[in-house]
Design a protein around this nucleic acid. Sequence first.
DNA 1: GGCAATACGATCAGGGCTGCAGGTTTTATT
DNA 2: AATAAAACCTGCAGCCCTGATCGTATTGCC
Lengths: 226, 226
Amino acid sequence: MPGVATKPRRTSEGPTRQAIKSATTRARIIDATIRCLVKYGYAGTTTLKVAEEADVSRGAMMHHFDNAAALMYATAEDLHQRRLKAHVRRAREFDHQQTGKLVQQSWEQFRSPNFIAFLELAMAARTDEHLAAILSPLQREYRERWYRQALELYPEWESASDEFALAFSLSQTILHGLAVALLTESIKPEMVEAVLRNLERQIRELRAAAKARSLASEGASVPAPA
Amino acid sequence: MPGVATKPRRTSEGPTRQAIKSATTRARIIDATIRCLVKYGYAGTTTLKVAEEADVSRGAMMHHFDNAAALMYATAEDLHQRRLKAHVRRAREFDHQQTGKLVQQSWEQFRSPNFIAFLELAMAARTDEHLAAILSPLQREYRERWYRQALELYPEWESASDEFALAFSLSQTILHGLAVALLTESIKPEMVEAVLRNLERQIRELRAAAKARSLASEGASVPAPA
DNA sequence: GGCAATACGATCAGGGCTGCAGGTTTTATT
DNA sequence: AATAAAACCTGCAGCCCTGATCGTATTGCC
């Protein structure tokens, strides 16, 4: 077929068509990987299944990711970025008074497919030092971001690092715990709400304690009585 | 070599030597499976590695377990029995006053290799309906046993099912959460103790509330004030 | 001692998965 | 238009794992 060369040949700046195409299929493959992790688990996720799920030839896939491990690394980083983005969005929309809403939204994150996929990778990383080497710094960054964000939202934590650290750890622990305990049927689903409300109450109490200490240390450096 | 037949030929009752041998190697294989789950994870646990770890030929192994799936099922049941046994032992040695000790011992269970192995199986069960069909009733039994045990130890819970259910769910959630949050580096290891102590405090408060309600309902059916 | 059953061992065929070695098509540059 | 480079596809060889078959040794029963 002659005359097919009607395609634009612009040398102008901006992402080239190649770059766009490349990024697109790359994203398609990573998306497919996440779906596979959810559907089949880490053990059952093969390059073949991912290629099928992404509707891409295995060759194309190997072009973007040298081997299966590289694919997992890239997926881990992508999941990390998604979690960060969700976290930032949550914080931005946040109304200072509604601790309950914040907890609720955080919990929704832990119910998302992204968290399942992340959990699969985290479990795999336990016995895969290379994967662990990728995940570890990401987790670290996530923790730190959360910390800073919370300090911006609740300045009163500033002078009560103990209460803050506990509130943070409690939140992480309970959210992770709910997700896993549900997965393993270690608690009944109808108890989730009660546990979440309990967490909210705990956070509020710790905040109050932090505020009290903040006021106390403001007047004079009097250590709070036990 | 003649004269080797000095081996006892007793037809007496009791487990035969065959039965003993069989049970022994069976146990060796299951032990090896658990170790493999810890070492290599579910994805990396193959029949070959298990046989090596157990120091048994693959043939012998296939004699006791028809296929890899059967091995996993048997391991799941074995882990369940171990967890039950540990739980009963914990309850028996228990001194009624020391909530802290009970929490501490429960936490130690969650740090054991058995829990890791169990977690690997539980994660695998998420995408393996056959394995899930095995694990589900076991989990159910574990929950129920825990419930009954706790009611025997703390009769005051009896008339405060809400507080009891919350205390139970909180314990399960936090213990699971600590284990997983540590695994995923979502909390710092030095915070574990603080979270555990917080759990103890919560349980004590719920117990007190339960006791109060118990007394109130004893005199008359007056609903406890908020 | 003889026979059956059980426990165990060595070997093999088949299947699925991986990684790579070639090609073909599309895009970018000149 | 010509060339290079990037994106993409097809097919193959090798590997590990699995399940099964056959053979051997031990044990139980008579």
